[in-house]
Amino acid sequence: MHFRHSDAIWSEYPELVAGTVTVTGITPDGPAEPLIEKFTAVAEARLAAGTEAEFPEIQAWRRTFSRMGLKPTQYRCASESLLRRFRKERVLPRIHPLVDLCNAISLAFAIPVAVFDTAMISGGLEVRHANGDEDYLAFSGETEHPDAREVIFTDAAGRAHARRWTNRQSGHSSVRDTTASVLIVTEAMHDSASEDVPELVAAIADALGDVWRVSPETAIPTRSSPRVEFTC
């Protein structure tokens, strides 16, 4: 399988910094809570000094959404949505140890982290502009079609696994109790992203090793080398 951003995405968003983690051996009973608390505490400290709207990581994604023609306070990147909910409720709902852990790391870094069940992906994933005929399975069970030119994550079968780039993932490849292998993708646009994304990727890989005793593979795709191959 593979993951990549299209040439058009790299051309239009040269400030993009992305990272991937792939791993096999995930179970629904990983003891992730101590690490979840650790990363959540980092987010709490950051939010004590100001709201998520002031974070450079969030401001950069807001500018990106505006460039995509989206109202950034209507369609938020995933990390902003998590931070906003956490600031108001002081807790995030528990879904699955892996999802909960990645959400906590996303909170700590204020950078979107997407987790895909690779068993539900055909061929690989590409971040590209939509044609408009791709199928997106919402968590409500309804099938949607992204707008033409919308930035999506799509596979060889024409499924959109995320809409509006980092706004909303699909229910089709979401993590469930039967998930064993995953592709984790993180993307950032802010000035220090070239330092922060590798640190975030390393944090995820270390956390997965601690909780599930696995050996993740990591990569930092670039414009000159955009394709990541993996065997999960």
Rank of each mutant, 00 (worst) to 15 (best):
residue 101 L to R: 05
residue 221 P to Q: 06
residue 43 A to V: 07
residue 212 W to E: 09
residue 77 C to F: 07
residue 15 E to N: 06
residue 210 D to G: 02
residue 77 C to H: 09
residue 189 M to E: 02
residue 164 R to T: 12
residue 130 A to S: 13
residue 66 S to Q: 11
residue 168 R to K: 14
residue 199 E to I: 04
residue 151 V to R: 01
residue 166 T to H: 09
residue 175 V to D: 03
residue 25 G to Y: 08
residue 92 L to G: 07
residue 93 P to A: 07
residue 197 V to K: 02
residue 139 F to H: 15
residue 179 T to C: 05
residue 188 A to M: 02
residue 132 G to T: 14
residue 190 H to S: 06
residue 18 A to E: 05
residue 54 E to T: 15
residue 95 I to Y: 08
residue 168 R to T: 13
residue 95 I to N: 12
residue 223 R to N: 09
residue 95 I to M: 06
residue 36 I to D: 03
residue 53 A to V: 05
residue 172 H to K: 07
residue 193 A to H: 02
residue 16 L to C: 00
residue 148 A to D: 06
residue 54 E to M: 12
residue 99 V to C: 12
residue 105 I to W: 03
residue 101 L to F: 06
residue 7 D to M: 07
residue 42 V to C: 02
residue 131 N to C: 06
residue 79 S to Y: 00
residue 14 P to R: 02
residue 37 E to N: 10
residue 173 S to P: 02
residue 81 S to D: 13
residue 189 M to Y: 13
residue 205 A to G: 09
residue 45 A to I: 05
residue 119 A to C: 09
residue 33 E to Y: 03
residue 94 R to S: 08
residue 50 G to L: 10
residue 119 A to T: 13
residue 193 A to Y: 04
residue 47 L to F: 10
residue 180 A to I: 14
residue 113 V to N: 07
residue 182 V to I: 04
residue 113 V to D: 09
residue 173 S to Q: 03
residue 52 E to I: 15
residue 146 P to E: 10
residue 159 R to W: 13
residue 48 A to P: 04
residue 8 A to S: 06
residue 76 R to D: 00
residue 208 L to F: 14
residue 184 I to Q: 03
residue 49 A to W: 04
residue 133 D to H: 11
residue 50 G to V: 13
residue 228 V to T: 04
residue 139 F to C: 09
residue 148 A to N: 08
residue 142 E to A: 15
residue 194 S to F: 10
residue 56 P to W: 07
residue 102 C to M: 09
residue 97 P to S: 08
residue 145 H to F: 14
residue 167 N to W: 07
residue 44 E to K: 15
residue 73 T to K: 11
residue 141 G to Q: 07
residue 15 E to Q: 14
residue 85 R to T: 12
residue 1 M to D: 05
residue 114 A to H: 12
residue 115 V to N: 06
